[in-house]
Design a protein around this nucleic acid. Structure first.
Length: 110
DNA sequence: TGGTTGACTAAGT
DNA sequence: CACTTAGCCAACC
């Protein structure tokens, strides 16, 4: 592939696809992995266009583990249900025990 | 070409 | 401790 030709969005998608089952990460973590720590907003903006792609956008939350992007999903609680289906406990749009399910891409680029 | 937008984050009040 | 403000920067119009 040609990363140079890939837009920032495509890079975000590539990282998001690497999120393991039952784990979540934050927009900022992805942005930092791409070397654009301050572009966390762009990551979220990118996820906005991830709908329809094989990107587990439901595994991407904000730094607090809050499902800020759930409103962009079809159902009102689809995102939460998807996470719970993976064994992640979600209460009131917030991931419980976030530290144990959080996945940092920077730790996986071996 | 230039201005607006946001699924963010950190810092301040 | 909860809310507000400001900085960020790629994509879109």
């Amino acid at each position: 592939m040609k990363p140079e030709t890939l837009g920032f969005f495509e890079k975000v998608y590539e990282v998001a696809r690497q999120i393991p089952y039952g784990r979540v990460t934050s927009y900022g973590a992805i942005a930092r992995y791409l070397g654009a720590t301050k572009s966390a907003r762009i990551v979220g903006y990118a996820m906005n266009g991830s709908f329809g792609k094989d990107v587990p956008a439901h595994r991407v939350v904000n730094r607090k583990g809050l499902l800020t992007g759930k409103h962009h999903f079809e159902g009102s609680h689809l995102m939460q249900q998807l996470l719970e289906n993976e064994g992640i406990e979600v209460i009131d749009n917030q991931i419980q025990n976030l530290e144990s399910v959080f996945w940092d891409p920077s730790e996986e680029m071996s």
